Amino acid sequence: MFSGSNPATDAHYNSSATDPLVHYGRHFGRTVHALCNFQALLTNGILRMGELADTPEENFTAERVSYFPAEERREHRVFQELLKSVAGLEERLMHGGDDEVDAVAELASIPFFCVCKVICLSHISRQLTKGASGARGDDTKSLKGSVLNWITPKGQNLIPPLARNIKVDHGFHHERTGALLCPAGLDWSNSETKAKLKSSEIIVTGDQWPLFLYADYHYDPEDPWNGLFRSALLVCAYRHVFTSPSSVDREPKATRSGNARIHGMTRVTLPSIAYIAMQIRFSLTSSPVFSRTDTVTDSERFYNSVLDVFEDPDEKQEVNDLIIWWNR
């Protein structure tokens, strides 16, 4: 999965002129959590560290975690991943020097933080957000034309053709993109269903997963996991972002390392699959600008619904099989 290289990589953001936090933020957004509120994540994570300071991590996992709501458990896991991903971040958060004057979060009024001064919280969250948002924007732009190439049958043209810079004719307004975005369980070939999707009489929410997620774009109602997250379109987009655009056709031509290699990534992560699925879904829609709060594309709900399934204990075996398939 990670052979080849990418001419449009994060190498520029790893230079001495760029805050390393931006570099870390780009990879974190792609592989751990794409729509993270870093300010809230850091603030809540620091508070939780104080609360759990005397609790061994293994005890927290086995005993204390059940007392937190599911959303908070996920936030804690994401926070722990952030601490592991960014070298020296925990030390910087907990013991920053007075010369770091960008922003100060003073929690001395809280008993278990009476001696803890958190420095530069706003600066850290701002730089991480800059990295994650920048990577997402770069990938959205880069994938826009490529997705159209991948969904066009070889040797043929889409009829009518799809514009590359204007998306008004995408989504349910076009036969090809509409078929790929059609929720599993609905029949795009049914003229009444198609008309209702086009007119928005049928409102598609983010937790209604589209057919492009499935191998051969086929949904099996008797076995919903059959082919799920194994489509050729997902694989192409994943290679495009993490390895190189040229690696999609297995013809590496670039000279610089791809994003996966730059960040030392050797295995596919589940959140990175959700991230690529979110990017493809947006690319196929008629919405011109990505927004996590856009109720039309409902991207945030879609992304979180995928993470919910990946983290569901009842789906553990299927999820394990999926990650083995991606890392084969």
Rank of each mutant, 00 (worst) to 15 (best):
H23C: 04
H23D: 06
Y24M: 01
G25V: 00
R26P: 03
T31F: 09
H33S: 04
L35K: 10
L35A: 03
F38S: 07
L42V: 05
N44W: 14
I46K: 05
I46P: 02
I46M: 06
L47A: 11
R48T: 11
E51K: 15
P56N: 09
N59M: 14
N59R: 15
N59K: 07
T61N: 14
A62Q: 13
A62R: 13
A62I: 10
E63Y: 14
R64Q: 13
F68K: 09
P69R: 12
P69W: 12
A70T: 11
R73L: 04
R74D: 13
H76P: 02
R77I: 09
V78H: 10
L82Y: 03
A87D: 08
R92K: 05
H95R: 12
H95M: 08
D98H: 09
D99N: 07
D99M: 03
V101D: 00
D102S: 03
V104G: 02
A105F: 12
A105V: 09
E106H: 13
S109Y: 13
I110N: 13
P111W: 04
F112H: 15
F112G: 08
C114M: 12
C116F: 13
I119M: 15
C120D: 13
H123C: 00
R126V: 01
K130I: 01
G131C: 05
G131W: 03
A132M: 10
S133H: 12
R136K: 15
D139K: 11
K141Y: 14
K141G: 10
S142M: 10
S146I: 01
W150T: 04
I151C: 09
I151E: 05
T152F: 02
P153C: 05
P153A: 12
K154S: 13
Q156M: 09
Q156C: 07
N157Y: 03
I159W: 11
P160I: 06
L162A: 02
A163P: 02
N165L: 06
